[in-house]
């Protein structure tokens, strides 16, 4: 008797018995899955009946020209984004400064570059040669306009200057999102305006600035396909050339789309890590990395039966 009595509290200590209940059935999920699968099958069937030379895609996927185009696309994307971000931060600071002249300049810049289509701006840069025969910066630089305005420079200016207008607004929102008490605290410590901005405000503004900038980056990567307008040779150009040479135009567009998808996917992962870096201090625990999440998901999958019961 006494032995049993001692045992009972012991067994209780393992915790209350888990509830056993029949889970709610989600019929809607099954119906949706069936409909989606049917639609997918129709799509696959349609493409199978089409006159597509699927083999041309893997054959040319790592073609030297394609790879060169990928490199050029990545290069103009990065160069334009760097120009856009740097100029955007400067414009945002100008817009928020107390100096009415810089405020007005920044406002005017954003008004023009955000108010006209990027395609038009690209063409404009390229065609400025029609009104300027020479570029003359005195002793620093002199040349004929057509030698000066290379396709790369036209693409860089067209995309980068346009991007700066958007980045300026993103940065302004980020800077304004930082609590005013932060500026006050920094100034009470004797920090200058510039130091306050660089050491206290901008690092915190980054948390607000990075996510939309990641979007801008991905957008930029796709927008670079417009640089065909200024004869800059990129991924899309390479695909189209191969397409017209081999007669597999549509296939090469699939190929280009696949490459763009790969590049944007890589950027998304990079964005995730960047956001994680700037979240330090704002959350008690950092969000898990992709691999940590993957491991956790795999673990919960293998454990699913136990979890549901």
């Amino acid at each position: 008797m006494t032995v049993e009595k001692i045992d009972k509290p012991g067994s209780k200590a393992t915790g209350p018995e888990t509830l056993k209940a029949i889970p709610v059935r989600h019929y809607g999920r099954w119906v949706a899955a069936v409909i989606i699968l049917a639609l997918l099958a129709m799509l696959v069937y349609a493409f199978a009946r089409g006159d597509v030379n699927w083999g041309a895609i893997p054959d040319n996927f790592f073609n030297d020209e394609i790879l060169r185009g990928v490199g050029k696309t990545v290069w103009i994307t990065i160069a334009s984004m760097v120009l856009g971000v740097v100029l955007g931060i400067i414009l945002a600071v100008m817009r928020l400064s107390k100096n009415p002249v810089t405020q007005a300049v920044s406002w005017g810049y954003i008004w023009f570059f955000r108010g006209t289509p990027v395609y038009v701006q690209l063409l404009l840069w390229f065609n400025l040669g029609l009104i300027f025969k020479y570029i003359n910066l005195g002793p620093i630089y002199q040349d004929e306009w057509s030698d000066f305005m290379t396709p790369f420079l036209a693409a860089l200016l067209g995309l980068g200057l346009n991007e700066a207008a958007y980045m300026a607004e993103i940065c302004r929102a980020g800077i304004q999102a930082v609590d005013e008490g932060q500026t006050e605290a920094a100034q009470a410590l004797g920090m200058s305006h510039a130091k306050t901005l660089r050491r206290v405000v901008l690092p915190q503004a980054m948390r607000v600035i990075v996510p939309p900038t990641g979007n801008e980056f991905i957008n930029m990567l796709k927008t670079t396909s417009l640089v065909i307008a200024v004869q800059y040779w990129d991924l899309l150009q390479a695909s189209q050339e191969i397409g017209s040479n081999t007669g597999a135009s549509a296939e090469m567009l699939f190929l280009a789309a696949a490459w763009y998808l790969i590049l944007t996917s890589v950027l998304s992962v990079g964005q995730y890590y960047l956001e994680r870096y700037y979240a330090r201090g704002s959350t008690r625990n950092l969000p898990p990395t992709v691999f940590q999440r993957l491991r956790a998901n795999l673990f919960s999958l293998s454990n699913r039966s136990g979890g549901v019961a």
Partner: peptide, 19 residues
């Protein structure tokens, strides 16, 4: 700014730099 160096200030909402 130079004069503020000699004056310390503590705020109601702390205003520590969170990063």
């Amino acid at each position: 700014a130079a004069k503020r160096r000699d004056i310390g200030m503590v705020f109601q909402r702390f205003n520590l730099f969170p990063h």
